Simulated assay, not measured.
Amino acid sequence: MSKTAHNTAVNSFNSNHSSYDVFRPSFNPILVNPFLVDLGLAEVIGDKFKFKTDKKIVEIACGTGKFTKNLIENGWTTNLTVIEPSSGMLTTFQKNFPQIKNVIQASSYEIPLQDNSVDAVIIAQGFHWFADDESLKEINRILKPGSKLGLIWHFDYCSPSQNSNAEDSKFFNDGSRYFNSFEKIGNNEKLFEKFFANQKWNEEVTKYIYGFDVNVPQYRHGKWRKVLLESKYFKNDTKDSFALYDRLISKEDVWKYWETRSYITDLSDEKKEEIKYKLFSIIDANVNENSYDPNTKLLIKPMVLHAVVVTVNK
């Protein structure tokens, strides 16, 4: 019997799909377009990108379409299939993108597509939920020989997921005021620790919230990376790319952003109110005049977008 999608993920996203769509960040073309080049889905001609929309893409765990929006804007419609196990997420997705017809409610463990039929598989903000050999075997099955798997996540703090060499990685400045002082030599995890230290309030809030995610798979745990690198279904040719940016956010929206996390959504209302109060206390105790953008007066939240590309082994 095949494995099924993680219950916590499906249940929480069934209930919080609308908030997820509002408060989770989008994916900037400054990294997405080079990511599509690495996947063999685009090429650079002069200073512009040309997208190969004849290539067939499957996006697994499409959610509400935060990443899908980039694919549609780049010209993919008929050659795009999206797969998502949460009915709630698909409700919001179909409201957002009624023009996408190839929408399938399914998981990464049983993909109803033919062998060797897909040019690329993309998973945005989701692979940690199903980072195992069973999923990778199924993704391998539908990919054509020589094609690639692309993974992409936003992250809020350093973790083993960035355990790679800066010299082998690509870095993009998506408007971060700290980019020019960011070193690009050594281990990426250590470098991002220094990057996030630029805003103490965000660092402390993130560490606090991370204390609640011990029972569910998360990007930051780094398990996905070990599984991917050791899998016989994909080559050990991982390419890492990072885009550094500043998210400007109100104190109230800091809570709304974190409330969309599955391990917070799953808690009782009483516990969530307790966490919210503590989160605001942490912010108040750690902000200073450099914590706010001078133009908008909003909090500066350093963030990073991480893209990973590997080649199918077949």
Rank of each mutant, 00 (worst) to 15 (best):
R141P: 01
E167S: 13
V118T: 11
N163Q: 04
Y178W: 02
D115E: 05
F127W: 11
A120P: 00
S161M: 08
T91S: 03
A124Q: 06
S87A: 10
K144T: 04
I100Q: 10
F172H: 06
Y157C: 12
Y109R: 10
I111Y: 09
I104D: 08
H154P: 15
E183W: 07
N163P: 11
I100H: 11
E84W: 00
H128T: 08
F127L: 08
L149A: 06
G146E: 04
K144M: 10
K184W: 11
Q162S: 15
E167R: 08
S135F: 09
L143H: 07
S117C: 13
S135C: 06
T91F: 08
F127I: 07
N163I: 00
Y157L: 13
L151T: 09
G126D: 05
N163H: 04
A166V: 00
E134Y: 04
Y178S: 03
D168C: 06
P85T: 04
A120N: 00
E183N: 14
Q114Y: 15
K170S: 08
A120C: 00
V82S: 01
G88N: 07
N180K: 15
F171V: 03
Q125W: 11
F127Y: 14
S107P: 11
Q114I: 13
E167T: 15
Q162G: 15
G175N: 05
S176N: 04
S117F: 14
F182Y: 13
E183F: 11
L143A: 07
G146T: 01
P160Q: 02
Y109I: 13
E138G: 04
N140M: 01
Q94V: 01
V121F: 07
L151M: 10
S181Y: 12
P85V: 05
D132M: 03
S164L: 10
D168E: 14
D132Y: 06
D168M: 13
E167F: 12
G175V: 03
W129V: 06
N102A: 12
F127G: 15
V82I: 15
F171S: 07
P145W: 00
P85Y: 00
K184Q: 11
Q94D: 03
W129M: 05
V121E: 14
S159L: 11
E138K: 05
P85Q: 01
H154S: 13
K137W: 01
F171K: 09
L151S: 07
D156R: 15
Y178G: 02
R141G: 01
A131R: 00
Q99A: 08
Q114H: 15
C158R: 06
P112V: 09
I123E: 13
E138C: 02
F155K: 15
Q162K: 07
S108D: 02
N165G: 08
I83N: 01
D119E: 02
T81Y: 09
V103C: 02
K101A: 13
S147I: 10
L149R: 09
S161V: 05
G88R: 03
E134V: 04
Q105G: 12
Y178Q: 04
I83P: 02
Y109K: 09
S108F: 00
T92P: 13
K184R: 12
K95P: 10
I122M: 14
L90I: 03
V103G: 01
T91A: 01
S164I: 14
F182A: 07
K144R: 12
S161K: 04
I111C: 05
A120K: 02
I100W: 11
L90R: 08
I142Y: 00
I104Y: 06
L136Q: 11
G150F: 10
Y157H: 13
Q99T: 14
Q99E: 08
D133K: 14
V82N: 03
P98H: 10
